[in-house]
Structures are given as C-alpha cells and as structure tokens.
Amino acid sequence: MPVRFAEQKLLFFLSELQEVCILSLRAVRGIFSRPLYYREFVSQLDKIGVDSLFIVCLTGLFTGMVMALQSLIQLKPFAATSYVGGMVAVTMVKELGPVLSSLMIAGRVGSAITAELGTMVVTEQVDAMRVEGTDIVKRLVTSRLKAMLIAMPLLAVVADTVALAGGYLIAAGYNISPLMYCKSLPQFMRFQDLIEGVAKPAFFGLLIVMIACRVGLSVSGGAEGVGVSVKRTVVVSSVFILVSDFFITKIFIFFR
C-alpha cells in the first residue's frame, strides 16, 4: 500500500512537471510573436515590480543589517572589521539577495497569480477568453513571464543595494568609514558574482511564474480549490527555489 501511494505521488509529480515544462515552452515561444499584449504586460510589470518594491526593500534592509552585525562580531577578535562591507556584499549578491527576494515574491506575487487565474477558471472567464479566440497561454502566462523576467532581477539588485546600505548603518556604529566599507567590496566580489546575482533571480522568477500559472490554470472545486492551489503555489515554488539554488550555485562554481 505505501509503495502504491508513493508510486501515485511520483506519477502525479512527473506529470505535473511535464505540464509545467510544456506550458513554459509555449509561454517562452509566445514572447517573440504577436500580439504582444503590451497593456497586460505593463500592468503585470506594475503589479510584480513596483508593488513589490517595499517588501523587497524591507527584506534587504534588515537582512543587510543582521549580516553586518553578525560579521562584525565574528571579525572583531581578528581586527578585521574593515572587511564587513565585502562580507555583506558577497553574501547578499550571491545568495541572500536572490533567494530571500524570490521567496518574498513567491509568497506575494506567486500566490496572487494563482488566485487570479484560479478565480478566472472557476468563474469561466478563461473559457470565455478561449471562445473569443484568445490564446490564453500568450495572454495570461507570457505577459506575466515577461514582466517577471524583467522585474525579478531588478528587485534582487534593489534588495542587494538596500542591504549594503543597511549593513553600513550598522558598520558606522563600529567606526567604519564609508570609504573603508566600500573599499572592501572588490576584495571579496568578482564580476561573475554580479552575473550570478542577476541570473539566479531571473531563473527563480521563471520558476515562480510557471508554477503559479500552471497551478492557477488547473484549479477546480470553486473557492476552496483556489485556496488550496494558492497554498500549493507558495510551498512548491519556495521548495523549488531552495533546491534549484543549490544546483545553480554548483554550476557557477564549476565555471569559476
């Protein structure tokens, strides 16, 4: 019995993975063909990017401050507190910035996408669009994907920048000058780290949108179904972000 249960779960997982991959291919293909749904794209860019700025800044600020505080305590016995800027920067740009901002976006935007699409499904708006001749993948998925691919790396950059500023606020309390703080950055950072810091959130953004759209478009069971799907989107996309972060990091280390 447990083997059968595990087999069913595995089959369900694989079939869902296949559906997400097919949806992703169709959505990516739609980026390059008309109609471009410019208005929908701008609206999504506003919802995903601009509306998420505050929460991402808040995440960056406090993470940067905590990072600086912890680093200073560790560095002080070695009289190496001047390196705090570099430590905050490398940790934020390569790991915490992309991962934490993506987790926040998965919770805030991923859930909203699933809820919106799920509600459209249960109220037959998606069926109505299909009857009216609309390619729903292109209109509902591609426009969100385009917006996310632009917004997510920018949000991560904002989170990194705010974290660095937050780190300096703490470092200043330890008599570290702005110059000293900034001078330590290139000692720890390489150009490839900056690429990693932008590539990771872009990939995480892709994961969030595709999972949210797939789950949203397959909602059934009315309002309760929408609720269950929203929860599933947040959990699944968070897990995938954390797991894929490990493998992306491995790839970047391989090409270092």
Binding site: P35, T123, E124, Q125, A128, V131, G133
Partner: peptide, 30 residues
C-alpha cells in the same frame, strides 16, 4: 468558433476590463 458565441451562466465577464472593453473584446483581439 466565430460562428458561435456563448452566454455563460454567471456572465463570465472579465473583471479587469470595463463593460465596453468586455463587449469589444473579440474585435480588439482580432
């Protein structure tokens, strides 16, 4: 489907669009 239209049970109007945009939806799409 151009030969057929449907009035869904709950109307299935698009929430994010005005009434005018809903009515003109197919024409705008085409």
């Amino acid at each position: 489907r151009k030969h057929i239209s449907i009035v869904f049970q709950g109307g299935a109007l698009f929430d994010s669009m005005t009434v005018g945009e809903n009515v003109a939806y197919r024409l705008l799409e085409e």
